[in-house]
Design a protein around this nucleic acid. Structure first.
Lengths: 148, 148
DNA sequence: ATACAATAATTGTATATACAAATGTAATTC
DNA sequence: GAATTACATTTGTATATACAATTATTGTAT
């Protein structure tokens, strides 16, 4: 990936600015590829993330703030996201009995089946996206990203 | 930045998956910081990017496809983005005389002044975001990102 | 016990983005 | 030269996101 070529500029950028643009370009590319993988399943990246969080609960219900806390990208509308997942039959939502301010969200059998199907395909996509990296390079990259 | 801590998981992720999530988290963090810098100027990152592209034209008008081509994140609604910039008085749009399918977009004096004000503040923000990096590390990071 | 504050979720509004369809104009083909 | 195709932009619809305001419920202080 050549930054200058992609944004079609021929002026030299300062290294910090170039680095930040580079990260944005890479992140966009990754997002696009993953969205493409999910598309046949008619599910968005965010909806998929919510389902994975719920699966990680191992049957224990999660309330909205728990989901929010664990999402990669912070959301202010997890309510509406869950609405969509309910429509698709992937989750159920009930009001918490002990504290009626809270809601309890659980993944359904259908949601779990969907996740299992996607898991394998996504794993392949992840390998494909990182095909040019040796394992040591992935460690190097993670170490550098830790500095943020 | 610790990935597992941020997404509140205690299970070990495979290195590829962890790397991709790591990049998403860093990109989000950068986006947030830059949006915060731009907020007092009542301008979004994308609007700011369009203005910078137009400044790079040095007075030469740009049409929509040119802008699209040079944007960091691809857009399908550059029309509406430019609409907002017109409302704010930062750009002008006219129909191209030679080819009436095209439009010609130019940045105004007001737009240029705004950009000059933001430039310095953004430069500081970029340095701040990358404060933990030595120059050699920035080069290493760019080299690794080139592998995508 | 009532008033006030804190918590959890929802809703409204605005921007950004993806994709598809529609519009208007120019170029090509027969 | 009429019909078709290609081009450039615009518009419509859906999702994602940020921020603020609102609603409903619970906890606390006096």
């Amino acid at each position: 990936m050549n930054v200058e070529e992609i944004i079609k500029t021929n002026q030299r950028m300062p290294l910090p600015k170039r680095t930040l643009i580079h990260i944005a370009l890479v992140a966009n590319k990754i997002d696009e590829e993953i969205a493409t993988v999910l598309k046949p399943f008619d599910i968005s990246i965010q909806q998929f993330n919510v389902l994975r969080i719920l699966r990680g609960q191992n049957g224990k219900p999660a309330n909205l703030s728990t989901i929010n806390e664990r999402m990669v990208t912070k959301m202010s509308n997890t309510t509406r996201l869950v609405d969509k997942l309910i429509l698709k039959g992937f989750v159920n939502r009930t009001v918490c009995i002990n504290n009626r301010r809270k809601v309890e969200i659980v993944i359904t059998e259908g949601g779990l089946n969907m996740l299992n199907k996607i898991d394998r395909i996504l794993f392949d996509a992840e390998k494909r996206i990182l095909k040019n990296f040796e394992e040591t390079e992935l460690h190097e990259l993670n170490d550098l990203l830790n500095k943020f």
